[in-house]
Nucleic acid binder design. Structure first.
Lengths: 109, 109
DNA sequence: CTCACCTACAACCATGTGGTTGTACGTTAG
DNA sequence: CTAACGTACAACCACATGGTTGTAGGTGAG
């Protein structure tokens, strides 16, 4: 972990926190300023800002400057790419295993 | 985060490490003993054992004692439940947003 | 039976993480 | 212009994490 923070590491780490998942859900529905988000959680503004930064580094959200506010938007493609990609992989492995089991059963018949 | 480690926290945290994702992929294809896994990575047996423990706590793998070895198996249902559930959520939000956009466009017509 | 192997776990260390407070700076409202 | 707001970032703290080594217990091979 010293080096080699690939995209999947960043995305899964970003998702491994209930507050960040909640932020992601909210901004996916509608963009929110950082301070508007900060008011929702029982923690300091700076803490929420850090959570947003983690989501941003994972490219799960983007920020759009609007006047003096910074509007956070959800970026669904990163999520679909990484998480969906992983699901595909396991789906494929699982299906191959099912096929193999079927094959073995047929051999025994 | 002091308290409240729900299933999703555990699953995503478990996936936020390339070594653990690799272990999960391998054991999903075919069960492996802990020591067989340990030989694959440039780290101590104890370190790999800890990685397996993290996957086990997230219920992404199960262990089956077989003689003096402990065989690690992949457990795809946990992955599908949590990750698939999240994907569903965002899929739904995304679709609603698309609907809303369509709606707005129609109103303007 | 004895020895080697597989596993488990504790103790320890360096670093990362999530939280805090404080400071600084740009922008907008009045 | 000035004051308040929104943001960014640094410094700091407690604790978790990922790694190490060492010790100990079960189990199987010879």
């Amino acid at each position: 972990m010293v080096v080699g923070e690939d995209g999947a590491d960043l995305v899964f780490h970003a998702l491994a926190d209930a507050t960040r998942r909640d932020i992601l859900t909210r901004v996916s529905r509608a963009g929110q300023s950082v301070s508007a988000l900060a008011r929702l959680y029982p923690m300091s503004f700076a803490a929420v800002q850090k959570h947003v930064a983690v989501l941003e580094r994972a490219e799960l959200v983007t920020k759009e400057r609007r006047g003096r506010e910074q509007i956070v938007h959800g970026n669904p493609s990163a999520l679909r790419d990484v998480v969906g990609g992983l699901m595909d992989t396991y789906e494929r492995i699982w299906r191959q295993r099912a096929d193999r089991i079927t094959e073995l059963l047929q051999e025994e018949t």
